[in-house]
Write a protein that binds this DNA or RNA. Structure first.
Lengths: 213, 213
DNA sequence: GACATAAGTTGCATGGTATGCAAAGATGCA
DNA sequence: TGCATCTTTGCATACCATGCAACTTATGTC
């Protein structure tokens, strides 16, 4: 191996790099085809062909067709979990979560065009935006777990999984991100995504007060 | 017609009553079968047979198999929208939403056994809890619209659909309800559902502060 | 009450989605 | 090189989902 790949979770042998490449190719093909033809008209066969693998292989990577439109980066959850656990102690749980998500989203914007297409595809078929919850639900459970750990300090979440508060926090933050994406997708010219994102978390931290206007 | 049915949206001719009955029979059959055998093992054919209709008819009522597990009451969205619009002016948007949802959930608990089974089914396959977002997304958009109307006072939402705040409010409230259901479903003996529900909205209104403990 | 109309149900045909299995191909390592 | 492991692939199978045409059932009117 001559060159480390750029990302955090990268590295490993040829096998793992190939797998990541295949997965990325499938995701990207799915998003581009959906942006062009509409998500409903894109078959698994078309996605697989565009990525140069068989249909059967597609289903080795994704549990369902929709998942390919939704989960752009499979490792994001693990990275966010790590970020929450490593966040400075003075941050509130909500702020720690906000920072973890902001970092992830900022990185996603590096592939600006794909990210924009992705937002448009989700906005065009709310069905998929919803499905995103499903795909991200595991990640949310992970985040809830991380928050619970952070609150307790030790390595024990209490046996019965994270409590009500961590789960609520993770679920609400997820909803906030999706709302931000959807809103930004409809107003791309008027505001930067990160501005929308921060406005949303400010509203959350303030307890969702009625706007003064 | 000799007797008015009990519910708000009830009434109408024989046709409408039959449709409601068929839909309810399909929903109930789906939930009961899922509670018994696990949602993944329940086919559309089994649900249809249990409800006494053909498979084709099932798909006249639901867009997908999962929808039958998720949407127990198709009119709930419209009722909540109405409740938000009619809520006392002194309530904050969040409180108005909370009251509308609480009323709906209290009514759902009248069919206690079915409601409990429903919560268990969703808890057992998070896949479906997620799908719930999809099914309820239209309702959430409606709620966002109602909140926007309420905030403006007149009959105009501003042309471009509800703004960021109403949408965020509806999405977060939806996430809160789902979290409540999931948590309560795992701790049914320890707390009443409405207690969990109110605790969640209290946390939201307080801006999700770190718990003192 | 009989009729025309609208609405709902059903079976059939069709195509896409998803999974298990076993054979073939690639990779990692000694 | 040769063996163990992982990945891809084709095939068979079952289920999901939709359009269409034929049939049955309410509704309103005369």
């Amino acid at each position: 191996m001559q060159l480390m790949s750029e990302k955090g979770a990268a590295g490993g042998g040829l096998r793992e790099r190939k797998k990541r490449a295949t997965r990325a190719a499938l995701s990207e093909a799915a998003v581009r085809l959906a942006a062009e033809h509409g998500a409903e008209k894109v078959t698994v066969e078309a996605i697989s062909a565009a990525a140069g693998v068989s249909v059967r292989t597609f289903f080795n990577y994704f549990d369902s067709r929709d998942e390919a439109f939704v989960v752009i980066d499979a490792d994001a959850g693990a990275r966010m979990r790590h970020a929450v656990l490593e966040a400075p102690a003075h941050l509130s749980p909500l702020a720690a979560l906000r920072e973890a998500m902001a970092a992830e989203l900022a990185e996603a914007e590096q592939q600006h065009e794909l990210w924009r297409l992705h937002a448009e595809v989700l906005h065009a078929s709310p069905h998929l935006l919803a499905r995103g919850v499903g795909a991200h639900m595991a990640a949310e459970a992970d985040l809830a777990d991380a928050i619970a750990l952070r609150l307790r300090g030790d390595g024990d979440t209490g046996g019965d999984g994270p409590g009500l508060y961590p789960r609520l926090l993770a679920a609400v933050a997820g909803a906030a991100v999706r709302t931000s994406m959807d809103h930004w997708s409809a107003h791309q010219e008027e505001a930067a995504f990160l501005d929308v994102f921060h406005e949303v978390f400010t509203l959350l931290a303030a307890g969702l007060p009625a706007p003064s206007a």
